[in-house]
């Protein structure tokens, strides 16, 4: 039995390793504390030790034991911080710039996926938008997938258990996060922040394809978009509601 679900990204293993690192420290601390807590319960019970000693603990020679423990705790804390900071930087701060950009937008209660259209940018009018229940976002393997995360109505949270990544999506903001998948497969994208009545049903998929499969899939999508767009002018990718307009107006200032 695996503690974690199957890992499918480059940085996933780092998160798992971090868990085991912290677990080591925590286990040591736990064992020591349990001994310190339970040993006196036997040794100094009323029967074995009817007369208690008078120790106020204000003396340095007594308090130094607590100090040692605290210093140990502080040191292991900072080792953990030091060890994990690289992972944090890699995942959250150093988002790569090259790769395939996709848009993931949370709405009540579905994830809307945007593929870049002909212009290679997401969230423009020629995007290919997939807005169906249980839809799939196809991405190629071993490529940086740069996800632009947005929310249209309320706060949602993109959670990819297999990619070990998660980020809130907030109305009015765009968060750019990334993942690089190393395994072909079909993985869940769920919403991890309560977002209304059907929060429990908010689940779509990311499908990791080989490069060839992905190209084929995209070619089919573009062809379909062309045939759909041919007779009439391009429809806006995302319905520009009054809300979106006013944000934009605010934006120009």
């Amino acid at each position: 039995m695996n503690i974690f679900p199957e890992n499918a990204t480059t940085y996933g293993q780092e998160i798992d390793n971090l868990f085991y690192l912290i677990l080591t420290f925590v286990a040591i601390a736990f064992v020591i504390s349990v001994v310190v807590l339970f040993y006196p319960m036997f040794r100094y019970s009323e029967k074995r030790n009817p007369k208690a000693q008078y120790i106020t603990g204000e003396k340095k020679s007594h308090f130094k034991w607590v100090m040692y423990a605290l210093i140990m705790l502080a040191m292991s804390d900072f080792i953990i911080m030091y060890a994990e900071h690289g992972t944090w930087e890699k995942i959250e701060e150093d988002v790569p710039t090259d790769g395939i950009r996709v848009g993931i937008t949370g709405i009540q209660w579905n994830w809307v996926f945007n593929y870049a259209g002909k212009d290679g940018k997401v969230m423009t009018a020629d995007d290919i938008v997939i807005n169906e229940a249980n839809s799939e976002l196809h991405v190629p393997i071993n490529t940086n997938i740069i996800m632009e995360l947005r929310a249209r109505d309320v706060v949602h949270d993109v959670f990819l258990p297999n990619a070990r990544t998660k980020y809130d999506v907030i109305p009015g903001r765009t968060h750019v996060k990334w993942a690089n998948f190393t395994k072909v497969g079909k993985y869940e994208v769920v919403c991890s922040q309560i977002c209304g009545v059907l929060h429990s049903k908010m689940r779509n998929y990311i499908v990791v394809d080989t490069k060839e499969d992905y190209d084929k899939y995209m070619a089919a999508l573009y062809a379909k978009q062309d045939s759909a767009n041919a007779p009439k002018p391009a429809a806006p990718a995302i319905d520009t509601t009054a809300k979106a307009d006013s944000t934009k107006a605010a934006d120009k200032k």
């Binding site: 006013s246 944000t247 107006a249």
Partner: peptide, 8 residues
């Protein structure tokens, strides 16, 4: 104002 899109 909101109707004019000047929500800010």
């Amino acid at each position: 104002m909101v109707a004019k899109g000047e929500g800010v």
